[in-house]
Design a protein around this nucleic acid. Sequence first.
DNA 1: GCCGTAAAGTTTACATTGTAAACAATATCC
DNA 2: GGATATTGTTTACAATGTAAACTTTACGGC
Lengths: 211, 211
Amino acid sequence: MAVSAKSVTPKARGRPARLNRERVVAAAIECVGEHGIEALSMRQIGASLGASAMAIYRYVADRDDLLLAMLDHVARTIAHPPVNRSDREEIVAVMMALHSGFRSHPWVVRVLLFEGKGSLLVMPLVERIFAALDRLGLDIEASIEAYLLLLHYSYGESLSFETAERRQEARAAFVSAGFEAFPTVRRATAASAGRENDEYERNLRRIVAAL
Amino acid sequence: MAVSAKSVTPKARGRPARLNRERVVAAAIECVGEHGIEALSMRQIGASLGASAMAIYRYVADRDDLLLAMLDHVARTIAHPPVNRSDREEIVAVMMALHSGFRSHPWVVRVLLFEGKGSLLVMPLVERIFAALDRLGLDIEASIEAYLLLLHYSYGESLSFETAERRQEARAAFVSAGFEAFPTVRRATAASAGRENDEYERNLRRIVAAL
DNA sequence: GCCGTAAAGTTTACATTGTAAACAATATCC
DNA sequence: GGATATTGTTTACAATGTAAACTTTACGGC
């Protein structure tokens, strides 16, 4: 029956580990946060932990497994907002919570979209949205479409403004090269220079108001 | 003054070209269309034209230059819709035109977002949107935000449903693994199975109605 | 006919990626 | 002091973009 050990610690048998899965995932997230998702490499992670690339594979099956673990890690940091008075405020609050995750970790959206992954840990938030849409009187089809509208806008916004410079670049692109032929665009460009908005929240509220 | 030649053809001096920029760009677009943007490689393009990877560099400065040329090529295929009766219909029509480009060539959005590029050829369409927003009475700040809302939703939707399978995957993800705890999500999932929507247009109209 | 020149295309090479396979290092158990 | 189990490293491979050197193939003038 082997009731024997299992008490304090079974005393590890082999070489003592310097690394563990948590540290590997944390190192990967930090690396991506600093140099962007495209700079993420096993060698880089290993180096940042004072180890070789292959050392990582003791704690992670492969690149996909690592990405999934990173998603879960971020999902755990998302604060679940308190239940709201109105259903519309509930939707806004939950989407803002999700979006704050995308904002702090822009690579998350790329992983969600391009690696076909997703963390189950955000499902309670998704459920709250569907429940609120239900209470608002939307039927199931309309709820799905509304959810996709909210989610896809959030994705697009996060990717588009993935970095702070990207906000600037977007404006610079407007300003550049021969836009005299497009007067309204020109005026818009001039007006947008140097403003630091929370345009996401306002647009989110526009969507929610329209549901 | 050298008025001499320049008439019919200055008679090419060196080895006759088997390739040209147009064919290279077309081959690249076809390659990406079939195997996805991540499979795009100089060697692949060369092979599909019966040439080596380096042959491509006669017609394209580097990868970035190629991507930009591909964008321009797609931009030229976008039909500019006729001017519309109402300003809201104008916005819908123009966004549908842009979106149809994203739909036929999903990699376009990735290039726009991640390579920091953009084709100037779509500027007339952008101008039409800003002009319509202006006529609707939005001030400049509100116009910018509205434009970003329209654009980012379009980006997110296109990326999310980049391939037909992705629509299925999205549903499968909902269905999978232990969702008994989320009843509203479950119902939504069941309802969405096997429907082929034009959910983009309906959501687009929801946005436009809210502006 | 033949050589100079110019253009087009190929070959080779390098640093980078994820990861498989073989190996070395380091601890406990008998 | 082995035997054994676990951790980490080394080496290797195919694929990427592209720089440098080379080869092929045409025309223009003698």
